[in-house]
């Protein structure tokens, strides 16, 4: 296994172009090193992204907050502007793993992993985050919906990397992130959920994690709630419209996950309706 740490974007682009397939990008390494240890991956070349200037920066303009590919989850959890505009993202970031994991793992790694249980995904989907995928001389900006293509799968091509995450301003304060796991701290979600009330028209948005191959908005339940309101009976009915296809694993049976998802929806919407 070879290890390289480019110091410029140009150098990175060249490596991606030349080496393509047997190359693995390393950000925090908290997924990759576990997979290498278990023999699930054996890359010929590891390219460390942490040497490139600016990759660990958070900046903003009038339209969006921009997060570099090496900004750690801990930095996001503590960042004032993010906490003010996107509090649920700070919350979701803070819920990942442990302090040691968050000190290493960037948001970009959580996204690129594209796990259905990745804790930041429901919130990013809700906030309509965009990801910039770069490659020498080319780049594209995708919605989360277009980026996430399956469990552990994304639209990233072998010669591309995620170079930026954009959070459109103004954010929204009325968003809650909830995580149900077997123990508090250091456990992947059995079910996670992001729910919020957006804009002057008070539109409901809802996304559930760890309950389907792809984390996406629950548009049918959202439409129903937007049309009918947030009374207890509406909330119960909306739960029957959730699009879930959970798996059974050591974190919970499929039926249990469905049950928890519905209970989280009701409890969270009840908290939110006071703000409507």
């Amino acid at each position: 296994m070879e290890y390289l740490k480019p110091v410029s974007r140009k150098e990175l682009h060249l490596l991606l172009k030349k080496k393509g397939k047997n190359l693995r990008l390393l950000a925090g390494g908290t997924d990759l090193l576990v997979r290498i240890r278990h023999g699930k991956e054996s890359p010929a070349l590891i390219v460390d992204l942490k040497g490139i200037r600016g990759f660990d920066k958070i900046s903003s303009n009038k339209k969006f907050i921009s997060i570099g590919p090496c900004v750690t989850l801990q930095a996001i959890a503590e960042h004032d502007e993010i906490r003010r505009n996107f509090p649920a993202l700070a919350e979701a970031s803070r819920s990942v793993g442990s302090w040691q994991i968050r000190n290493r793992a960037p948001l970009a790694g959580n996204i690129c992993n594209a796990s259905p249980a990745a804790d930041t995904l429901p919130v990013l989907v809700l906030y309509d985050a965009r990801v910039k995928l770069s490659h020498s001389g080319r780049r594209r900006i995708l919605s989360m919906k277009r980026f996430l293509t399956g469990p552990g799968k994304s639209a990233l091509r072998p010669d591309e990397y995620l170079s930026e995450i954009r959070l459109p301003l103004p954010g929204e304060k009325r968003v809650l992130f909830e995580k149900f796991s077997r123990r508090k701290g250091l456990d992947l979600s059995t079910v996670s959920l992001a729910a919020g009330i957006f804009g002057r028209r008070n539109r409901v948005r809802l996304a559930i994690g760890a309950c389907a191959p792809i984390v996406k908005r629950q548009t049918e339940a959202e439409d129903f709630l937007n049309e009918h309101g947030l009374q207890d009976k509406d909330l119960e009915l909306a739960c029957s419209l959730l699009q879930l296809s959970p798996i059974t694993d050591l974190r919970g049976k499929a039926a249990f996950r469905r049950h928890i998802a519905a209970r989280l929806v009701v409890a969270t919407m009840k908290k939110l309706r006071e703000d409507r």
Binding site: G29, V34, D48, Q100
Partner: peptide, 20 residues
């Protein structure tokens, strides 16, 4: 756990190559 550049990290989750 060790402290790397002021931050607590798992040394089992860092490559020795990364400490330059």
């Amino acid at each position: 756990t060790v402290i790397m550049n002021g931050k607590a990290v798992h040394s089992c989750m860092v490559l020795a190559a990364e400490i330059d």
